[in-house]
Simulated assay, not measured.
Amino acid sequence: MRPSAIVARYHDAMRGKSADALADLYAEDAVHEFPFAVPGFLPDLTGREAIRAGYRAMWDASPVRVEEIRGVVVHETADPEVVVVEHETAGTLGTTGRPFTVPGLLVLRVRDGRVVHCRDYMDAAALARLREAGGMPGGTDPAR
């Protein structure tokens, strides 16, 4: 599978909050890193099943509804296995329906049609605001 097809399926999994669809894109021994992680957010994940379990736990616990992945730009690099993906995740928060956006950057290494390594750079300040508003585990949303 070409990296651009993997990016499209990755974004589909995000919109659907499908940990299975996301994990199925990864090699069995893949690594998913969060270099700018907010304290208390997901730790780095090693292995397809850890990625599946980590995302299932996060997405099941979060009332965030992802409605759109926009501003997607895929940059191919000199290394044919590596693509850099810019995007912005937009949706609504909890039961308040308040809109949110979180800019992000993915650096994906794809080998034999599977993600073998992902560096997931999300805007840590935007995630902290979202968490404080109750959109992520550990936050409080008085409307819930």
Rank of each mutant, 00 (worst) to 15 (best):
A27C: 12
A5I: 14
V83L: 02
C118Q: 15
A5V: 15
M58K: 08
V83R: 01
R52E: 05
P99S: 14
R98A: 10
V38K: 02
P3F: 00
A5H: 15
R111M: 05
D141N: 12
A53G: 05
A23Q: 03
P35V: 07
V31R: 11
H117S: 10
A126G: 04
D12M: 03
M136F: 03
G139I: 08
L130E: 00
R48E: 13
I6E: 01
A27E: 14
R119M: 13
L42C: 09
P63L: 14
R56D: 15
L93P: 00
P43W: 13
L105C: 09
R15H: 02
D29T: 14
V82M: 09
V85H: 09
M136V: 04
R15A: 13
S18N: 05
A128F: 04
H75A: 09
R9N: 11
V85D: 12
G54D: 02
F36I: 03
I69R: 01
G71R: 07
A13I: 11
P103C: 00
A57V: 07
R56S: 14
L127V: 04
R109F: 03
M136L: 15
Y55F: 11
K17D: 11
D141C: 07
L22K: 09
L105K: 07
V7T: 06
D120Q: 13
R109V: 02
Y10K: 10
D60N: 04
L22V: 10
T92K: 03
V31E: 14
E33N: 11
I51S: 10
R52S: 14
T101F: 01
A125Y: 05
V102G: 00
F41C: 15
T77S: 09
T95K: 09
M14R: 02
Y10E: 01
R131S: 02
A13G: 13
A61E: 12
A90M: 07
A57L: 10
R48D: 13
F34R: 01
A13P: 13
V83Y: 04
H75W: 13
R119F: 03
A124D: 04
A23L: 12
E132D: 14
A8V: 12
R114S: 01
V116S: 08
R52W: 08
L105Y: 09
A125G: 11
G138H: 05
G138K: 04
V82S: 04
A37E: 02
R109W: 07
V38A: 05
G135A: 06
V110R: 08
R56E: 15
L106D: 02
G40V: 10
Y26R: 02
R111I: 13
R98K: 11
H11F: 12
S62E: 00
T101S: 15
P3L: 06
A53C: 07
A30E: 10
F34G: 00
Y10L: 06
G71Y: 00
